[in-house]
Nucleic acid binder design. Structure first.
Length: 526
DNA sequence: AGAGCGTTGTATGC
DNA sequence: GCATACAACGCTCT
């Protein structure tokens, strides 16, 4: 039977390595490629102008590629459940295809849509292609438990074998018997959105450094994969957080939106590695993709992964509430030039280096301001082009030493850390031109400059540029103490030692469930 | 129980 | 540039 198929793009905004799209083309006479602007996801609160612009670019590119196949993209505005119900009837859809998405909201949304599909007799086909592996399989492989260390994840993925090879984009031949009815007068109705549509002011928008879309992603991938020796010697901790142009690939936004398949990235790297000596996980580029897999897996296995409360693996910390601190951090006016420069780059460009994220995240949370990582998470989600639900939540937990990482006494200095890779403070001068006349000696701590130096630099601290919001040496010490106390309050493993346990059979190995294990078991059942 | 390890700390000494 | 002290965490394996 020939289907009328609706392929629903959500993430996975690409034609290459898109198994659900290929499944859509099978036994298909009419194809409707659809993207839904979901007010829950695509709204002014979660999605800053830069990210919105990236999405628009990606949709334009997708539409262009589909048109080359005599098809097009239909952009639909509204709640997915309601909109699909309408479209199933209007277009007499018999099959729905999409890429599997593990985010809690997506899972509940897709469950609702599956019910609507069933009502309309629409067959549903979905494929895993956003991650290297089916992360549910990784958890299964670990006896149903979430791997909480990278080492463990590495062992599990090793035992699963290499990720699947990517599949090619559909060709004109694949589309031979497939038609997308474009004649209807729906050019306007289903058009690509504009920035104005979401109410963003386009006049104030900075230059677009990282345009969205699969074509740009593949171009960028090619550009970096040509640098074979750079790829082979890549070690993440050795790359600079404050170089004037990115020291890493900036492929993350493309992977986030699925313009680039993680598996395509993985196998292109494997090609470059082939026969050469190369760096290894966790620091290698393959290692970076495995970090992504690590946090995706944790986000699926850990309930309430984007929150502290109700999150069984997250240390419960008595974070302060201080909206002025949050605002100063977000708006790049902490008085620490390194921190403020990073936050300025983030606001302008939508991307900052991973170690720069470490510096500002540590500063906001356990290092200096003692603000909940959830506050930082919100700001990053809004500003980052590569804002990804799982990675954002996972990394904020890491940096705040709430989960995964526990050496809370290792605190980044907002003064010393940046100096390692940028002694002159050129990065600071680029993003905070106000400070560009300060001599290198004072660029990381302008409040220490004598008044004469400040006058000569044309920038008075406390008037033109803020005084430091906190005394780092003082608060960081105190915060280590608060962290120590928070750790001391952590619930311990099932109180009694095995030998004292009443139902312990001597000699038999009894599994000691941690409180976290038990909480997770309980919550997964629901 | 204890050792070894953990992608990416800082300050100080040589 | 490299080693070391700092004061010290949880997880994993033995």
């Amino acid at each position: 039977m020939a289907h009328s198929t609706l392929h629903w793009f959500r993430k996975g905004l690409r034609l290459q390595d898109n198994p659900a799209l290929m499944a859509a083309l099978r036994d298909c006479k009419e194809l409707y490629p659809v993207f839904i602007l979901d007010p829950y996801l695509h709204n002014k609160t979660c999605m800053g102008p830069n990210r919105w612009r990236f999405l628009i670019g990606s949709l334009k590119d997708l539409d262009l590629s589909l048109r080359k196949l005599n098809s097009r993209l239909f952009v639909v505005r509204g709640k997915p459940g309601e909109m699909l119900r309408e479209l199933f009837s209007r277009w007499k859809i018999t099959k729905l295809t999409y890429e599997y998405d593990t985010e809690p909201y997506s899972l509940s949304r897709d469950k609702e849509v599956a019910a609507v599909a069933q009502e309309h007799g629409v067959e549903v086909v979905y494929k895993v292609s956003h991650t290297l592996y089916d992360v549910d399989r990784i958890i299964e492989q670990n006896n149903g438990k979430t791997p909480l260390t990278y080492k463990r994840l590495q062992e599990l993925t090793r035992s699963l074998g290499p990720p699947k090879k990517p599949i090619p984009a559909p060709s004109v031949e694949n589309m031979q018997d497939v038609k997308t009815p474009c004649s209807e007068n729906h050019e306007g109705k289903y058009g690509i959105p504009t920035l104005e549509e979401l109410g963003h002011n386009t006049a104030s928008l900075p230059e677009e450094l990282f345009p969205g879309g699969e074509q740009e992603a593949l171009r960028r991938l090619d550009e970096h994969m040509r640098r074979a020796s750079w790829v082979c010697s890549f070690e993440k901790p050795q790359t600079s957080p404050n170089s004037l142009s990115p020291s890493t690939t900036v492929l993350s936004p493309y992977v986030t939106f699925g313009c680039l398949s993680a598996r395509t990235f993985w196998w292109r790297l494997a090609d470059v590695y082939q026969g050469k000596k190369h760096s290894q996980p966790p620091v290698s580029l393959h290692g970076q993709l495995l970090w992504r897999e690590f946090f995706y897996t944790a986000s699926v296995g850990v309930p309430n992964f984007n929150r502290m409360e109700g999150n069984p693996v997250c240390t419960q910390v008595d974070w302060d509430t201080n909206s002025e601190y949050v605002a100063a951090w977000r708006e790049a006016r902490t008085g620490f030039p390194f921190i403020d420069a990073i936050m300025t780059q983030l606001r302008q460009e939508g991307w900052i280096h991973h170690l720069a994220r470490h510096a500002v995240a540590c500063f906001l949370t356990r290092g200096d301001l003692w603000i909940s990582w959830e506050e930082g998470q919100k700001v990053f989600e809004y500003l980052l082009l590569d804002g990804d639900w799982a990675l954002n939540a996972g990394n904020w937990q890491w940096l705040s030493a709430s989960t995964f990482f526990h050496q809370y006494f290792r605190v980044y200095s907002p003064i010393a850390f940046g100096k390692k890779t940028d002694k002159n403070g050129d990065y600071i001068k680029k993003y905070l031109p106000l400070l560009k006349k300060f001599p290198a000696e004072f660029i990381y701590e302008p409040w220490k400059a004598p008044r004469s130096v400040q006058l000569a630099a044309g920038c008075i601290v406390g008037k033109d540029y803020p005084r430091p919001i906190v005394q780092h040496e003082v608060v960081s010490k105190a915060n280590i103490g608060r962290m120590k106390a928070a750790y001391a309050r952590r619930p311990h493993d099932a109180a009694e030692s095995p030998s004292k346990s009443p139902n312990n059979k001597p000699g038999a190995k009894r599994k000691v469930l941690s409180v976290a294990d038990m909480l997770m078991k309980k919550q997964r059942k629901e």
